[in-house]
Simulated scan of single mutants.
Amino acid sequence: MAEERLSFKEMCARFDVTPRTLRYYEYIELLAPLKEGRNRFYGPREVARMTLILRGRRFGFSLEEIRQWLMLYSARGTHEQYQVWIELADRRLAGLERQRSELDVTIADLRALRDRTAESLKP
C-alpha cells in the first residue's frame, strides 16, 4: 500500500489552517514535509504531528511546549514523552480549574449586579 502524501493545499484543507500557519509550523520545526522542487508533501508522520499540534493548541499549550514535547519522542522515546505529557496536562488542568473558578465568581457577580439594577428599575 502506498504511503499517503498530502500536498500543501490538501494539508491546509484537511486541518482547516491557513497557508501562513502551515509555513510557520515548518519554520519553527514542528513539521518537516518532504520537499520536491517547490512542492511540499506531508506523509503520515506530519499528519499525526499536525493532529497533536492542533489538539495541544486547543488545550491551551504554547507552541514551544508542543515543540519540546514532540522532540522528546525522537530523543527519548514514547515512555518519556508520555511522562512529560502527564506533567504538562496536570499543570494545564490546574490552570483551567482556576480559570473556571474565577469565571464562576465573575458570572455570579455580574448576575447579582444585573439583578440589582433590574430591581432598581421597577416602580
Rank of each mutant, 00 (worst) to 15 (best):
P33A: 00
E80D: 09
T117G: 12
S62W: 05
R114L: 09
M1D: 10
A2I: 10
L121T: 00
L22I: 13
N39T: 10
V47M: 14
V47F: 06
D109N: 11
A48T: 01
T117M: 11
L22Y: 15
D104I: 05
R57C: 08
D115R: 02
D115Q: 06
Y42H: 01
A48C: 01
F61G: 05
F15C: 12
E36L: 15
G56H: 03
A13R: 08
G37H: 13
R20M: 09
Y82P: 00
N39G: 05
G37K: 15
L113D: 11
M71K: 15
P33S: 03
D16Q: 14
Y24Q: 10
F41H: 15
R76E: 15
E80I: 09
F41M: 14
L88A: 01
D104M: 07
T18L: 15
V105G: 02
R40Q: 02
Q68M: 11
A108M: 06
A89F: 06
R114I: 05
F41A: 14
L110A: 00
V84A: 10
M11Y: 07
E119R: 09
E29K: 11
L70T: 01
Y42K: 03
R116D: 13
M71G: 12
P19T: 08
T78A: 14
R14V: 08
F61T: 03
S7I: 03
I107A: 09
A108D: 02
S101Y: 07
V47D: 02
R116G: 11
S101A: 11
F15W: 14
E80L: 04
S74C: 04
R45I: 07
S62I: 05
